[in-house]
Amino acid sequence: MKLPAMLLVRLGLLALLSVIIETAAISEISVFGTSADITPLVVVAVALLLGAVPGALMGFVMGLLVDTMLLQTMGVSALVLTAIGYTVGRYREVRDPANTLTPVVIGVIATAASTLGFGLVEFLLGVDVPFNLLLVRDVFIMMVVNGVLALPVFIIVRWVLAPYLPDDPRRRRRRAYTTGGLSPLSRS
């Protein structure tokens, strides 16, 4: 369960870069009045690849960075993203989803959970949170845009974390066939 130090460094850099790119670039691009939010997508990708504890840790760190860089109430984003990271990580550990589109579906759900969860925590803290049907439309647009970005984000995160990922039996099997050495056909 102990995480290697270099993996922690990579996760930290990934979190910092993601939050900077999100606040400096992606949030500036308007799509029907709203913009994509890659922070829940990165947390989902890490949780799907590494499990519940790294997912929760990634959510916590990214949430703190978001709250700090946007001068928001400290802990709100951290709480929401920690819960998302842990839940998705547990889902991966219990069900081990194999479908290629899993990051897309979970990314879309996590986007909705993150946006509504943020609003709910703010509401519970007594902050005046506006709510109407147009916001529901905005959440829906954000889910669609994040759904488009979910797979590329997952692939990038997997590439960054590749040396530390547990070896996937499906990938190992594919590699074995292409090298020829372990293929059942070559033995016959």
């Binding site: 504890v53 929760a56 916590f60 802990g75 709480l79 920690t82 842990y86």
Partner: peptide, 17 residues
């Protein structure tokens, strides 16, 4: 780990507020 992280979030929230 989960309990510690959530407790940290709540402590931060309370202190910040």
């Amino acid at each position: 780990v989960l309990a510690v992280l959530i407790a940290l979030c709540l402590i931060l929230l309370t202190a910040y507020f």
